[in-house]
Simulated assay, not measured.
Amino acid sequence: MHFKTVAIVGRYQDTGLDAPLRKLAGTLGAAGCNVLIEADTAKNTGIREHTVASYQEIGKQADLAVIMGGDGTMLGAARQLADSNVPLIGINHGRLGFITDIPLHSANDALASVIQGNYEAEDRVLLEGRVVREGQTLFSGVALNDVVLNRAGRGGMIEVTVEFDGAFMYSQRADGLIIATPTGSTAYSLSANGPIVHSRLNAILLVPVAPQTLSNRPIVLPDSGTLSLTVTALGRVESGASVHFDMQTWSDCQAGDRIEVRRAKNTVRFIHPTGYSFFSTLRRKLYWNHMPQPSDEVE
Rank of each mutant, 00 (worst) to 15 (best):
Y276D: 02
A233F: 09
L190G: 06
S171D: 12
R48G: 11
G184C: 08
G70T: 05
I47S: 11
L28C: 11
L126S: 04
V160D: 09
G59I: 09
N193T: 08
V35C: 03
S224Y: 07
V298T: 15
R284L: 09
A121T: 01
A121G: 00
M74S: 00
A255H: 07
K265C: 00
G94Y: 07
S215F: 12
V298G: 04
R22Y: 03
L81V: 14
H198A: 14
G90M: 11
Q13C: 03
P222Q: 04
P218C: 06
Y55H: 13
G26T: 09
A192E: 04
D123Y: 10
R22F: 08
G59S: 04
N216W: 09
D123H: 15
D18M: 10
T213Q: 13
Q136P: 01
S277H: 00
V52D: 08
L64N: 07
C33D: 03
A7Q: 10
I47C: 10
G94H: 08
Q254L: 12
S199N: 05
R79G: 01
H244F: 11
A62N: 15
D246W: 03
I179P: 05
M247G: 08
E120F: 01
I8C: 02
I158M: 06
N108Q: 11
G176F: 09
A174W: 01
A121P: 08
L21D: 03
E159T: 12
W250T: 00
V231S: 13
G29W: 04
E260G: 03
A19L: 14
A77M: 10
M68P: 02
V243Y: 03
G32S: 13
I47W: 12
M169C: 07
K60P: 00
I115R: 11
T274H: 05
Q136R: 13
L286Y: 10
L214W: 02
K23W: 07
W250Q: 06
N202T: 07
G69S: 12
R133H: 03
V9Q: 00
V6H: 08
T226W: 07
R200W: 05
H272Q: 12
I8Q: 04
A241Y: 08
N216V: 15
V6D: 12
A42C: 13
L177F: 14
L144D: 00
T45D: 08
D246A: 08
L206N: 06
I89C: 14
E122F: 03
A107E: 08
V6E: 11
A152Y: 02
G153N: 05
S185Y: 10
A82W: 10
S189M: 06
P208T: 11
R11T: 13
D296N: 04
T5A: 01
V207C: 12
G153W: 03
G70K: 13
L234V: 02
E57A: 14
R283M: 09
A187Q: 04
I259H: 11
G59A: 07
S84D: 13
R269V: 09
A192L: 07
C33N: 09
V261G: 00
L17Y: 04
V162M: 08
V197Y: 08
G141L: 07
L206H: 06
S140P: 02
N289V: 04
H2F: 10
A121W: 00
P292W: 12
G176M: 10
V162E: 01
P195F: 07
A39S: 14
T73F: 05
F164S: 13
